[in-house]
Amino acid sequence: MAYFAQQAVNAISLGFLYALIALGYTMVYGVLTMINFAHGDLFMLGAFICLLLVTFSPIALPFPILLVLVMLIIGGLGGLIERLAYRPLRDAPRVSAVITALGCGLVISNTTLSISPYSRAMPEVFNDQYFNVFGVGISTLQMLIIGVSLALMIGLDALIQKSRFGMALRAVAFDARSAPLMGISVNRIISLTFLIGTGLGGAAGMLYGMAFPVISASMGVLVGWKAFIAAVIGGIGNIRGAVLGGFILGTVEIFSVATLPSTYRDLISYSLLLVILIFKPYGILGRAPNIKV
């Protein structure tokens, strides 16, 4: 029983990380119907930026400051990529934008690889402690991952449901062609969407790097794909679906590793994607698009 509870704690913290990354995919898809395949690499860069900040900062930066800096830098970079690489292709066929996104991702990961060819150890950002709660071990870091992710998700949900930006974002996602006629600057909304979505990915990269403290230029590939799967399982374009998908994937992974040989892990997650898509082609919370007349 304690073993089960222990795995549940692990599953929740991994699920939160997948969900944070999946949010970036799904937000961008929601407004542009485009998959930002550079997202996984921006996630990886989040961990490296954190490493750089910790290594080169003259004073020891506390965790909250580090987190905000990483989110701003990665978010800014995501916004810049949108402005320079994706915006000129806004009216081009979607596949061109997707290929461009793959290209941007490769440029980011290979630039990182050329600077840091080997894996690096993530320094300890704070003194991690281990608590024993009714026989279940939970670390400060796990609590932090859960707390920070939860705060970011609640904040994002409030922003989208309640704020002026959120209304405009939903309007653009629904009909990007008529939104400008209501005075909405679509470019501004899309820039902000990238800023927020990739900022969340950067935060996830930093937290992931702290949880699995060996970081490398290629770490974004597999994790990025999995978060993408999480977004698709939940229903891509649907914010709550991304969170749900992240949790499902995190849970399935942790429990398959706990009960089966660990090499089955990815086989099982990808099979899950296939099975869910057969029964729910638009994902669990996704809806079939309205046919326009």
Partner: peptide, 15 residues
């Protein structure tokens, strides 16, 4: 914007 509420549809133009 059918996915927004009636009030939001008006607010978005006002805002």
């Amino acid at each position: 914007f059918k996915s927004l509420t009636v009030l939001e549809n008006v607010r978005i133009a006002y805002d």
